[in-house]
């Protein structure tokens, strides 16, 4: 049963939601409307005059080969980050779930990376893999890998994927661990008696029962990879080499603040906003429809 509180006067409920409303207005609605407004204008290079151009900025994007390229990069990047992040965290969660002694310690340690700011995480990885002084780069070279992500686009992509996924693993881990703990032990035992070994039990019983968690995390991770990885890219590769890691969020920054194309960048943000809205709607649809075991 839903609990409802009836307020006698109209101003108290308004007062109670005011802080949240203010935050939403200042940090979301206002910039979003600015972007929407800005996407319809072209500004001159000095920012002194602007001209209304309608959907011209959007049409320009669709004809821009770099934008399509960046879109492709973003899709690849997101799929890789989500795949790697989910896979590694699920593996860790399964192991942590099996550990009885010291489980708390493992769990706490595994959660730490989430508290690290994206830019710092990026710097950390940049130093480790710096072609001339990085310890990881040195180790890779000793193993015969010619590591130089400043020149090699694939290596650069791999590095930002790792850096971005690493940060997300801890977040996914918490959810997977909670999901695993919620699966009744007797189900696993019944499967064991039915004759299933550990791997079989995982794929037949555990993984299907984790589907709601996995789907939720998939959406969250893709949204993260799409929108929240500016710090990592900026710290590690700055979109390079040769735009090999220029994902959409980074391109907005490049075009808007470096290229001074305010209208084009605004149009790109509007498109990104639409994508996040679509993803969120898809998620809610699914969650509503999803059977609860």
């Amino acid at each position: 049963m839903e609990k409802r509180v009836i307020f006698k006067n109209w101003w108290l409920p308004l007062l109670l939601v005011a802080p949240q409303l203010a935050v939403t207005l200042v940090f979301f609605v206002w910039p979003a409307s600015q972007a929407l407004y800005g996407s319809l204008f072209v500004e001159d290079a000095f920012g002194t005059s602007s001209e209304f151009v309608g959907v011209q900025n959007f049409l320009g994007l669709f004809n821009d080969g770099y934008y399509a390229h960046s879109f492709g990069i973003t899709v690849l990047f997101s799929v890789a980050v989500a795949g790697l992040g989910l896979g590694v965290s699920l593996l860790l969660a399964v192991f942590a779930d099996r550990v009885i002694r010291g489980a708390r310690l493992y769990q706490t340690l595994l959660i730490w990376p989430y508290a690290v700011a994206p830019a710092i995480a990026g710097v950390l990885w940049m130093f480790m893999f710096d072609p001339s002084v990085g310890v990881a780069a040195w180790a890779l070279k000793r193993m015969g890998v010619n590591w130089n992500h400043l020149l090699n686009g694939h290596q650069a992509m791999a590095l930002v994927v790792f850096a971005a996924a690493w940060k997300q693993v801890s977040y996914n881990f918490i959810f997977f661990l909670a999901g695993l703990t919620a699966i009744p032990k007797s189900l696993i035992e019944a499967a064991a008696i039915d004759g299933a070994g550990p791997a079989r039990r995982f794929f037949d019983i555990v993984f299907p029962l984790l589907t709601p968690t996995t789907f939720f995390l998939l959406v969250v991770n893709i949204i993260y990879a799409f929108f929240d990885t500016f710090g990592v890219i900026d710290a590690v590769t700055q979109g390079g080499p040769a735009k090999a890691t220029e994902v959409l969020v980074f391109k907005i920054f490049q075009d808007g603040f470096k290229g001074q194309d305010y209208g084009g960048a605004a149009a790109q943000s509007v498109i990104l906003m639409l994508i996040v809205v679509a993803l969120t709607v898809a998620q809610f649809r699914y969650v509503e429809k999803k059977v609860n075991y």
């Binding site: 009744p184 007797s186 189900l187 035992e189 019944a190 499967a191 064991a192 008696i193 039915d194 004759g195 299933a196 070994g197 037949d204 019983i205 299907p208 029962l209 075991y293």
Partner: peptide, 30 residues
């Protein structure tokens, strides 16, 4: 021996049916 090698079947107090499988699949799983 592992449970699977003992050739026993167990009925649990909470039944422990696999929630994502149909009745038929539950019975057929073993």
């Amino acid at each position: 021996l592992e449970p699977k090698d003992r050739d026993v079947a167990m009925v649990f107090q909470n039944y422990a049916l696999y929630p994502h499988m149909s009745v038929r699949e539950n019975m057929a799983y073993g």
